[in-house]
Design a protein around this nucleic acid. Structure first.
Lengths: 338, 338
DNA sequence: CATTGAGGGTGAATCGTTTCAGGACCGTGC
DNA sequence: GCACGGTCCTGAAACGATTCACCCTCAATG
């Protein structure tokens, strides 16, 4: 468009002041006499001046945003995390840039590049695969980083997570407690730490219950679609070879499994197969058979992560990295009744 | 952090070339001899140089992003739209910035300010209330704008929408066809055009079916929670005064209603109350009673909107604004069976 | 041999905001 | 009358990538 862009210079000329004064009106109005403030503001709205954020950031050296990379925006768990993060960021006048890696290392990497080029205030990431080195470099160059829903073993990063081993343990202990003995764990890929931990928790619970066996069914991702195809595979088995309980690594998968099982009338949840998911998303309670699940404080995770990030940014290089861990909670509904 | 930021100047010095050449390596490697490209790239990775996007944008005058303001990120319909938009934007090397107005005019306005300060390539918005003037000014200053899921009467804006009147008509005609006569429309606020249109379509269908009456129940927003409270209110009525069918303005509301009705055993869906939603989100088919709905091509809407935006940006001031409208589709499931 | 043009490279100017050292002005206190 | 401290403003410098007019070389051409 050929509309000449209006700059502080134009505003200054129109109001009969210097550019420095315009900037002061914008950023420290108390340092400018009221009459001048008024004159400048009149010029601003008359000319339709809009601050150029790029110039601002260039000067400032940092943007006023925080980058957040999640595994899947379609998963309500992550939108809840994002909402919590936004809330905390807003308290400090910051914005959250949401990047969806879609469980794809290439996209994850692209977002990290983008955020670094944008000189974001910091990065929150629910990491995929082995990005420890990448993140170390990022941090070394001055961008603080907090891991969301994951802690890295060597404690070199700050993190906010939920104890997924405990969650897996809760889920399977519950299934065992209601008398199920042939349990299937559905989830994948194993590059996602949560999947591995929940499985580990599941194994731990099984070990404590003699007579209970655990089968694992791998999936390519944690989506409704993948769940549905697992459900179809279960239906295809002879009745005797089906598990009598399924622990899905998240609610999306669980709902997919549920959809598939529900298509054919002869398998009933929870009568034939009990089903429990993970995350306790809002839709879980509205499922065909209301879904038992493991609840995580999702918004709180996001909120805390930003908080930690800001403290880390404040503290500088020598900041003591902190690992915060929340405990999950078992929510029992109809899908594991009896 | 005290890590000195690396600039093109440092890279140039280290590689023994001029800054102009470094820039050329970054942007037009074919204009630089292979040996020089290699030398510069070695310097870049050795120094850990990362382009400063703010400086880039300042010079370029525009950012490489598109702003998208949606009514509710928790609504899968909008995340699908966003996904479609991202896909199309990626084809042109652009990024999508997602802003959630949460049906709040203040937040909507804040995002528009932010996007304008960022000098985004363009804005996609699912507008709330009366923002025509605001958007006109935005466009006058050079930011092309496309309305998503809404067209403005005077055709002064480009838009991508679905015919919501037709959708409302489809839903209620279907309810009438299965013999329901006391239909309740649940939705709100009326500042959302979709709500108004779907209601209009509903009225149109009712008018064609003598003996069918329509009641409207207003809500403050289109969320599961609001739906649940409507459901509770319906339950509180004497059985004879309840509608025998509910048309909810979106699936979230419908699922809320369904949850509430399901808590008490004496009202059954669809036997006592048939229920149909709108958007056909992925969770609709996994609901307690699989939900009938009106499907919209959500990802396609986002994709097309960006496409239109880019064409408009290309065309300049004299671009002929275009209104694209898709047709919705009725999806019948158990919640309106019989 | 002079001319032309292409390929490869240079570096100062530019984008728009913020910052900061300093200047003008005015009232106060000695 | 003068120094002093405020208050209010000024305007040049800086941030870092990109652009563009220009320069240099060298080979091909007439």
């Amino acid at each position: 468009m050929h509309v000449a862009a209006i700059s502080v210079r134009d505003v200054a000329a129109s109001a009969g002041v210097s550019v420095g004064t315009v900037s002061n009106v914008l950023n420290r109005p108390d340092k400018v006499s009221p009459s001048t403030v008024e004159r400048v503001q009149a010029a601003i709205s008359q000319l339709g001046f809009v601050r150029n954020d790029a110039a601002r950031q260039l000067r400032a050296g940092r943007s006023r945003s925080i980058g957040l990379v999640v595994l899947d925006v379609a998963n309500p768990f992550f939108t809840d995390v994002a909402r919590g993060a936004e809330d905390r960021a807003a308290e400090d006048g910051l914005t959250v840039l949401l990047g969806n890696s879609d469980e794809n290392p290439g996209r994850q990497s692209a977002y990290l590049d983008l955020f670094e080029e944008q000189r974001v205030h910091g990065v929150l990431i629910s990491p995929l695969g082995d990005v420890g080195d990448r993140l170390s470099r990022l941090r070394a160059r001055g961008t603080p980083t907090v891991l969301v829903d994951r802690e890295i073993a060597d404690r070199s990063f700050s993190s906010v997570a939920v104890d997924d081993v405990a969650g897996g343990y809760l889920a399977v202990s519950h299934l065992a407690a209601i008398g199920r003995t042939r349990i299937a764990f559905v989830g994948g890929p194993h590059s996602i730490r949560q999947v591995v931990d929940r499985l580990e928790g599941a194994r731990k619970a099984v070990a404590e219950h003699p007579g209970v066996v655990l089968e694992t069914i791998d999936t390519d991702s944690l989506s409704v679609l993948q769940g549905r195809s697992v459900g179809e595979k279960l239906l295809a088995r002879p009745a005797g070879e089906r598990p009598d309980a399924v622990f899905a690594a998240n609610d999306l998968l669980a709902m997919g499994v549920l959809q598939a099982l529900n298509m054919l009338g002869d398998v009933r949840v929870p009568r034939d197969i009990a089903l429990i998911g993970y995350d306790d998303i809002a839709f879980a309670s509205a499922a065909v058979v209301p879904l038992s699940s493991i609840r995580q404080p999702s918004a709180l995770i996001g909120y805390t992560a930003v908080d930690l990030l800001l403290r880390e940014a404040e503290g500088g290089e020598d900041f003591e990295h902190e690992q915060i861990q929340f405990q999950p909670e078992l929510i029992v509904r109809a899908s594991t009744a009896g």
